[in-house]
């Protein structure tokens, strides 16, 4: 068992445990903390795949920004509501069966998969390469993403804004 395999095993375990905990915890703040475990261990997996830049972005944006925003959102709103589960036994069993079938199907797919040779130059200047690709080949989707962010911003404002015109009058 190599060190890389061991590291991957631990990170994957933490990632899955974080996800499962997020689903099963009842307090929202706890859920967010569980989510942080998943985000950070996924960043670790990116490093194992020699994608340092993506790992840094993952930590900055997911574990940093998104988690903080979520915590602020929870703090600034009512958070007494505790999660409760819905759906009867039959429904849960069916969903579990569906997930299990899908899991088995994917397992058969990736078990003994022969992907041919492995890439050896993964770690060479990959931040620079991402930058060049982003601003040359992928210019159109990049610009389109800015429209997407604008739309999301406008939407967040108009959906969350309090219409207090009555109060003004």
């Amino acid at each position: 068992m190599s060190g890389e395999y061991l590291a991957f095993f631990c990170l994957a375990l933490v990632a899955i445990a974080g996800g499962v905990l997020m689903l099963n915890l009842t307090k929202v703040v706890h859920m967010v903390v569980a989510l942080v475990f998943t985000f950070v261990s996924i960043a670790g997996i990116y490093i194992l795949l020699s994608a340092e830049f993506v790992a840094a972005v993952q930590v900055l944006i997911y574990s940093g920004a998104i988690t903080i925003i979520m915590l602020f959102g929870i703090m600034l709103t009512r958070h007494q509501d505790e999660g409760y589960s819905t759906g009867g036994f039959l429904r849960k069993t069916l969903i579990f069966l569906a997930v299990a079938v899908f899991g088995v199907a994917v397992y058969f797919g990736i078990d003994d998969l022969d992907l041919g040779g492995q890439a050896t130059t993964l770690h060479e200047k990959n931040t620079e390469q991402i930058g060049i690709a982003l601003y040359s080949k992928y210019l159109i989707p990049f610009e389109l993403t800015s429209v997407l962010l604008l739309v999301a911003l406008v939407g967040a404002i108009i959906l969350a804004k309090k219409d207090n015109e009555e109060a003004k009058k």
Binding site: I140, P141, L144, T145, V147, L148, V151, A152, V154, G155, I158, L159
Partner: peptide
Amino acid sequence: TLFVGLELLSISSYI
């Protein structure tokens, strides 16, 4: 591009 276009359409429609 296909995926970004798809998301632009979806997010606009959610709002």
